[in-house]
């Protein structure tokens, strides 16, 4: 089967890969490039565990073809921290115990980052609706919402 030769920027690194036409961006990240921080929970866009940033928007990487990412800028959870410094969302998730098993955490962190880039001061309701596509079965969402709100507050300089 003919593969496609793709060049994309992943977490700041220009990256080339070969992919089958049916392979999704999630398949490529996990199986070809070993970016296993991005998780697969459903493969149909219903759980959000595979959320990554693509050209500045958060998407379900299970619903993007690997071939579509040619020339794209992709950011995954592995690229969130700045050197030794965790992103404030990462810090707050640990501080607020906003993760239990942690499988949904990478997707929720990326989606939350996308929210705060657009809306630095979201209400609780706005956070809940923005993250409605990120399923978490452990926490009941309470501590996740608190962590996102607290990270937003800190990022606003409070």
């Amino acid at each position: 089967m003919a593969k496609y030769h793709i060049t994309a920027e992943i977490n700041g690194d220009e990256t080339e890969y070969l992919c089958e036409p049916e392979q999704t961006l999630l398949d490529v990240l996990r199986d070809e490039l070993n970016y296993t921080g991005t998780k697969e929970g459903c493969g149909s866009g219903d759980c959000g565990a595979c959320t990554v940033m693509m050209n500045g928007r958060h998407v379900c990487s299970c619903l993007v073809l690997g071939a579509e990412a040619n020339g794209a800028k992709i950011e995954t959870v592995e690229g969130m921290a700045d050197g030794d410094n965790l992103h404030p969302l990462q810090e707050k998730f640990i501080e607020h115990a906003a993760l239990q098993c942690g499988i949904c955490t990478p997707g929720i962190l990326v989606a939350s980052k996308a929210l705060l880039e657009r809306n630095p001061d979201p209400t609780e309701t706005e956070v809940r609706y923005w993250l409605a596509g990120n399923l978490c079965r452990c926490t009941g969402y309470d501590k996740i919402i608190r962590a996102v709100m607290d990270a937003a507050s800190e990022m606003r300089g409070n």
């Binding site: 866009g45 959000g48 959320t51 693509m54 928007r57 958060h58 998407v59 379900c60 619903l63 993007v64 989606a111 996308a114 929210l115 609706y129 923005w130 993250l131 409605a132 596509g133 990120n134």
Partner: peptide, 9 residues
């Protein structure tokens, strides 16, 4: 239509 992720696409 779906999640905010879905609406991105």
């Amino acid at each position: 239509i779906g999640s905010t992720q879905i609406q991105s696409r």
